[in-house]
């Protein structure tokens, strides 16, 4: 219909692939995604560095925020999943939580509006990193064979069923965990980005349409866009929290002695 001639959804490459700025064409090409990740690292590092520079017993200013973040990770994540002996993981989990949170928040910041986790680079690397870490902790705790046994043979299973249970448990604990960790973060961010782009394109198209009666209808997708931006804020924080708490759960499960 000629009414909607301009309602063309951009091809998905335009939404997620960005032009290289430096080192174009090489594997270390620097584009918008890479810049967002660098800024996230710099922000998180700056936050904790300035908080610790003139550390006082009664925190003020930036130190308040840093201490709140560390408190949240310790009480809400580490003590809930790993207990007291997991407290040595605090720096790692705070770094992961902070980095993923800032990367996700860039989705709703004007003029940037792209979450660095909408590309599979960091989700895949983060999941791989967590996989190496929880397997290393498990092997350190139980020894290699003992670790495999504790992960694949649940207690109380009759011997005859072990033929089926061991491959399923192996698949679930060693393959599906990192895969789902990566895909959960990646797909949440990509889906959020696509939703925001859809409603933005729709409201712009209706607003600039040729037929005048279409222009006031553009208020509806614009309102939806505002609501979705708020929802994306929730999803950004939630996904960072989920990634971090699942890291804690996996490390705790790998080092536990229940079986």
């Amino acid at each position: 219909m000629h009414l909607f001639a301009s309602l063309v959804f951009p091809p998905i490459g335009h939404l997620t692939q960005w032009k290289g700025i430096l080192f174009k064409g090489t594997p270390i090409e620097v584009n918008k995604t890479v810049l967002i990740m660098w800024v996230s690292v710099a922000l998180v590092f700056w936050l904790f560095y300035t908080a610790s520079r003139r550390a006082s017993l009664v925190p003020t200013g930036v130190q308040n925020l840093a201490e709140a973040a560390i408190d949240f990770v310790q009480n809400g994540i580490i003590l809930q999943t790993m207990g007291e002996e997991g407290l040595s993981f605090t720096p790692f989990l705070v770094a992961v939580f902070g980095f993923i949170l800032v990367c996700n928040i860039f989705e709703i910041i004007p003029f940037v509006q792209f979450p660095a986790n909408a590309r599979m680079a960091f989700p895949m690397f983060g999941a791989l990193m967590v996989w190496v870490i929880y397997n290393t902790m498990g092997i350190k705790e139980h020894g290699f064979v003992g670790y495999l046994k504790s992960q694949t043979v649940p207690s109380g299973v009759p011997k005859a069923l072990l033929l089926i249970v061991i491959p399923i448990e192996f698949l679930s604990n060693f393959i599906l965990r990192p895969f789902s960790l990566a895909v959960r973060l990646f797909a949440n961010e990509l889906a959020g980005h696509l939703l925001l782009v859809t409603f933005a394109v729709l409201s712009t198209t209706l607003l600039t349409a040729h037929a005048v009666f279409l222009k006031p209808i553009s208020v509806l997708p614009a309102a939806m866009l505002v609501a979705l931006t708020g929802f994306e804020l929730l999803v950004a924080v939630l996904q960072a929290f989920i990634f971090t708490i699942l890291t804690g759960v996996y490390i705790a499960a790998a080092t536990s002695h229940e079986h």
């Binding site: 789902s180 990646f186 949440n188 990509l190 939630l238 929290f241």
Partner: peptide, 17 residues
């Protein structure tokens, strides 16, 4: 509850991917 939601939502998002 949030943990459980994230687990089940992952499956829907794999379908979306």
């Amino acid at each position: 509850m949030f943990l459980g939601i994230a687990f089940t939502e992952a499956l829907a998002l794999i379908g979306f991917v």
